[in-house]
Design a protein around this nucleic acid. Structure first.
Lengths: 140, 140
DNA sequence: GTCCTTTCGTTAGTGAGCTAACGAAAGCTA
DNA sequence: TAGCTTTCGTTAGCTCACTAACGAAAGGAC
């Protein structure tokens, strides 16, 4: 477990496990929790907004949202302004879980922000941004 | 793309893409490159050593190594000392790629270590370790 | 020596990421 | 208006994570 890449990958795997474990009580996955939080915070979003927010490919969004639709968490309808786009919104079933989900996500975030100074967080931010760019990521 | 978790996840996805793209010229995946590097550095390892090194589950190791065996990259034989264990070693085909793979991995690592001071790297290390522990990871 | 527990690996099933190829709608250009 | 090009989403097929349940080998206790 020597290099940056491996450690970051391990962090992601561990986080996925933790989120999935918590999400299981709602019959959800970790990713589904994140999407419910995002959609719930915006009321109504386009599928392409979800792709952009989570930096995932179109096909990934399609499959994940199809699963969520099938389990009655979201609705997807053609956007009135542009029939190519899909407008995504929460069902009451998902809306009911939103508060607990947001609290979980915020709690994880708070645990990090209280454990480290703003200066440390800035270092982390610069390093992870550099890492992403080194791996061909966005140049902003 | 606001919180720690999402940024770390994005970093992992981006790295996976970059590694997969590079690995493609050899007909490999990024994960397979990492395993070839590790096995090549140790000559012969047990399957359980790979699980430990990469912090993955047994079943994940089984499937990945099965694929690598099928594509002629590794050999797996029952360990003489303990018939339950599998001893993993590189085939000549994989050994031939080892040097370029190691150079790629080392290059990525060097790019990070030269871009940041040891103090900065120490901050990063503490933060990522804290993050892993927060998500139920190992307590060392 | 016989049973019980632990360890190691496999199988089955699911989720989430990717690329590549494709269809349909919108937009642009002439 | 007719025909390209771009954009958005879907499908198919792959890899790599995970959990859960299982079999086989080794080790220990008696």
């Amino acid at each position: 477990m020597s290099n940056f890449g491996m450690v970051i990958k391990q962090a992601t795997n561990q986080m996925n496990k933790h989120m999935d474990t918590y999400a299981k009580q709602f019959g959800l996955t970790g990713t589904q929790m994140s999407i419910i939080d995002f959609v719930g915070n915006h009321g109504q979003v386009l599928q392409r907004d979800i792709e952009a927010e989570f930096a995932i490919q179109r096909s990934t969004a399609t499959l994940t949202l199809q699963r969520m639709e099938k389990s009655g968490l979201i609705k997807r309808v053609a956007a009135p302004a542009d029939a190519r786009q899909k407008a995504v919104s929460l069902t009451p079933k998902a809306a009911k879980l939103k508060q607990k989900i947001t609290a979980y996500i915020q709690g994880q975030q708070d645990a990090m922000t209280t454990a480290f100074t703003p200066a440390e967080q800035a270092v982390f931010d610069r390093m992870i941004t550099t890492f992403i760019q080194l791996n061909g990521g966005a140049h902003d």
